[in-house]
């Protein structure tokens, strides 16, 4: 028997996921046209790998395929990974990363809605630990023609040093090790644009545009992006104001690496994130702090992924302590 409510909003998981995919499109366009068109190929590879991996696990678990495959959640994970990985990553590495995310992180924990960690970020971290050199070869925007990109993705000679440079974050970090170097001197010479890596910096507004779309659709709330970007800007500003020669500007931090992608698409993953309004603020702000520390002082060039995982662990704790006030209850919080 069906009980009330007898009417439902035409909302669906598929709809939510579709909106996320739509929101990624501006960034994909910028990526493909300004940086490396091969990202489209990577997206396709990742999508196929994700769907195949999901189908395989579902089969093994004896679950029906259709509803799970059509909910598009695997595709979202796949796209996020394809956008996080370097565009010239060999195809097998992309496939491996996606399979880690789908099989190990999502399904071993019970499938959609059950995973305590963000699948894309676990896969990203696993890959960066397992293949540190492959994962840190980033072409400068428009540096390689499409054939070379394809060649790199589908095997063939990898003359690593000749073709690959590092990300803007990496360049600054390694550059600062040299005596007498300042942020300004480094940014003056290499592949830098207005605020961050040339070409790459345009990705940030594209992601932000997609994020605003998600906000407008009500898929995500303002809490996480605002807290994340706010905290990142605040801490980088503090260091920058104290020592502008050795710390990059807040603008640089906001426009570099995974900041914007993270703020709107990764931190906001509902399954593994905090759920209460105040919890979301705490969660996202802590990610920003940890990410900044790893970026500036840690061994890895980008810290968002690690920070997300670290805070995923804390989610139950955060949620438990930030339960909102229940209607009619004064002061005493729901717990």
């Amino acid at each position: 028997m069906i009980n009330s409510p007898y009417i439902r909003k035409p909302a669906s998981v598929q709809g939510v996921m579709l909106a996320v995919l739509t929101a990624l499109i501006p960034a994909i366009i910028v990526y493909a046209s300004q940086i490396a068109a091969v990202v489209l190929v990577n997206l396709a590879i990742a999508t196929i790998a994700a769907l195949a991996g999901e189908a395989l696990v579902l089969k093994l678990r004896g679950r029906p395929l259709a509803p799970a495959l059509s909910d598009l959640s695997a595709v979202v994970t796949a796209w996020l990974l394809a956008l996080c990985f370097p565009p010239i990553l060999p195809w097998w590495a992309t496939v491996l990363g996606v399979l880690i995310a789908i099989v190990a992180v999502k399904h071993l924990y019970g499938g959609l809605g059950q995973n305590p960690f963000n699948p894309a970020m676990v896969a990203y971290c696993a890959m960066i630990v397992a293949f540190p050199s492959l994962m840190s070869q980033w072409p400068a925007a428009g540096q390689l023609d499409f054939a070379t990109q394809l060649g790199l993705v589908f095997g063939g000679a990898r003359e690593i040093d000749a073709i690959a440079s590092a990300t803007a974050l990496d360049t600054i970090k390694t550059g600062l090790r040299a005596a007498g170097a300042t942020v300004q001197s480094i940014m003056g010479e290499g592949n830098f644009g207005l605020v961050s890596g040339r070409g790459w910096e345009w990705l940030a507004p594209a992601y932000a545009l997609g994020g605003l779309y998600l906000l407008a659709r009500g898929i995500i709330t303002w809490h996480m992006p605002a807290a994340f970007l706010g905290a990142l800007a605040a801490i980088s500003a503090a260091f920058w104001l104290a020592d502008p020669a050795h710390y990059a500007s807040p603008l640089f931090h906001l426009a570099s690496g995974g900041a914007m992608l993270g703020a709107f698409f990764i931190v906001t993953d509902p399954v593994s994130g905090a759920t209460t309004p105040r919890g979301k603020l705490v969660f996202a702000a802590c990610i920003a702090l940890v990410a900044y520390i790893i970026r500036s002082f840690g061994a890895f060039p980008e810290g968002v992924a690690f920070a997300v995982l670290l805070l995923n662990i804390c989610v139950p704790l955060i949620d438990m302590n930030t339960q909102p006030r229940v209607f009619g209850h004064r002061g005493d919080k729901a717990r």
Partner: peptide, 11 residues
């Protein structure tokens, strides 16, 4: 489908 903790219900 399983709950995706999207929080729509809480809102």
């Amino acid at each position: 489908l399983p709950c995706i903790r999207c929080g729509a219900c809480a809102r």
